[in-house]
C-alpha cells in the first residue's frame, strides 16, 4: 500500500481530521445561526482572526488559557454586535459591512500585534498559552475510536457539543422558533411584537462567539501562536459549508468534516514530492468544486431562477 493511503486509513489521520475541522466547524455553526436569522455573516473570517489574536494577547498577559479563551469569544461577540449595529441600525449593506470588518481584521490584527509584540509576522515573543488537551477516561481505551476521539483539544470536544446545542437551540427552544421566524418573515415576527433587531443582534453575537471559539482554537490549540492572516480563508470555507449543509447544524457539521478531510489530506501530502503550492491549493479547489456541484444540484431540484 502506498504510504499516503496507509496514512489516510490510520486512526491518527482521523484524529487529525477532527482537529483541523474544529475551527471551520465553529465558524460554520456561526454561519448557520446568522443565516437562519436572516443575516448573511461574511465577517466570520475577520471575527476568527481578531479572536485568535485577542486570545493570544489575553492569555499572554494573564497567564491563563481560559482568560484568553474568554477574551477571544468576547471579541467575536463584539464584532457581531458591530456588524449588527451597522447592518441593522445604519442599514449598511451586510456584504459590504462584512468586507469592511474583514479588512479591518486583516490589517488591524497586524497593527495590534506590532503595537503589543513589535512584530508584524508572528506572536512568538508573547508567552501565550494553549487550551488543554483532554483524555476521556473509558473511551480513550477503546481501540481505534479511542485513538480518534479519546484525546483531543478541549475546544474540539466543545465544537462537537456545540453542534448538538445549536441544534436544540434552533429547533426546540422558543427563542429558536422566534429566530427562524425572524429569518423567514421579519414582518411577521415584527407584527406579533418580536423585536426583529434584538433577535438578529443576539444571533449575530452568538455567531461571533462561535467564530471566536474557532479563532481561539487556531492560535491556542491548532498551533500555539498567532500569525498574520492565519485564518487563510477558513471563514469563507465555513460559508460554503453552511450552504452545503443546507443551513442546518448537522449538515454544516458533515460539510465541515469534508473540508477538514481535504485540509488534513493536504497536511499529510506535504511529505510528497509535489510543489507545496499545489498542496496548499487543495482545500480551496475542493471548496470551489463542491460549491459548484452542490449549487447545481440545488438549482435543478429547486428550480430557483436568479434570486
Amino acid at each position: 500500500m502506498h504510504p499516503l493511503l496507509r496514512a489516510v486509513f490510520s486512526a491518527s489521520f482521523a484524529a487529525s481530521i477532527l482537529r483541523v475541522t474544529t475551527p471551520v466547524l465553529f465558524a460554520s455553526l456561526g454561519a448557520v445561526v446568522a443565516d437562519l436569522s436572516g443575516v448573511v455573516n461574511i465577517a466570520l473570517e475577520g471575527m476568527m482572526l481578531i479572536s485568535a489574536l485577542m486570545g493570544v494577547i489575553a492569555s499572554a498577559f494573564t497567564g491563563s488559557a481560559w482568560v484568553g479563551f474568554l477574551a477571544g469569544v468576547a471579541s467575536g461577540i463584539l464584532m457581531g454586535l458591530v456588524l449588527g449595529y451597522f447592518h441593522l441600525k445604519l442599514k449598511t449593506n451586510v456584504i459590504l459591512a462584512g468586507i469592511a470588518l474583514n479588512l479591518l481584521a486583516a490589517e488591524g490584527t497586524v497593527f495590534l500585534l506590532y503595537a503589543v509584540a513589535h512584530d508584524k509576522g508572528v506572536s512568538s515573543s508573547l508567552p501565550s498559552k494553549v487550551m488543554p488537551e483532554i483524555q476521556i477516561p473509558i473511551i480513550k481505551d477503546i481501540p481505534v475510536i479511542g485513538a480518534i476521539i479519546g484525546k483531543q483539544n478541549v475546544l474540539t470536544y466543545l465544537a462537537l457539543i456545540a453542534v448538538v446545542m445549536i441544534y436544540l437551540f434552533l429547533y426546540k427552544t422558543s427563542f429558536g422558533l422566534r429566530l427562524r421566524a425572524v429569518g423567514e418573515n421579519p414582518d411577521a415576527a415584527d407584527s406579533v411584537g418580536i423585536s426583529v433587531h434584538k433577535v438578529q443582534f443576539i444571533a449575530l453575537a452568538l455567531s461571533g462567539a462561535l467564530a471566536g471559539m474557532g479563532g481561539v482554537h487556531l492560535s491556542m490549540g491548532y498551533v500555539s501562536w498567532f500569525s498574520r492572516n492565519m485564518t487563510s480563508g477558513r471563514g469563507f470555507i465555513a460559508l460554503a459549508a453552511k450552504a452545503l449543509g443546507r443551513n442546518h447544524p448537522i449538515g454544516a457539521f458533515l460539510a465541515s468534516l469534508l473540508f477538514g478531510f481535504t485540509d488534513a489530506l493536504s497536511n499529510y501530502m506535504q511529505s510528497l514530492r509535489v510543489p507545496g503550492e499545489f498542496i496548499q491549493m487543495i482545500p480551496y479547489v475542493v471548496t470551489l468544486v463542491v460549491l459548484a456541484v452542490y449549487s447545481g444540484r440545488q438549482l435543478k431540484s429547486g428550480r430557483s431562477s436568479n434570486e
Binding site: G233, L239, A240, L291, A292, Y294
Partner: peptide, 19 residues
C-alpha cells in the same frame, strides 16, 4: 450552477496566489 460568486471568487484568490 448558481454558485455564490462571492465565496467562489474568494477561494479563487487563494488558488491564484498559490498558482
Amino acid at each position: 450552477w448558481n454558485a455564490s460568486e462571492l465565496v467562489a471568487s474568494l477561494m479563487l484568490n487563494y488558488v491564484f496566489l498559490k498558482l
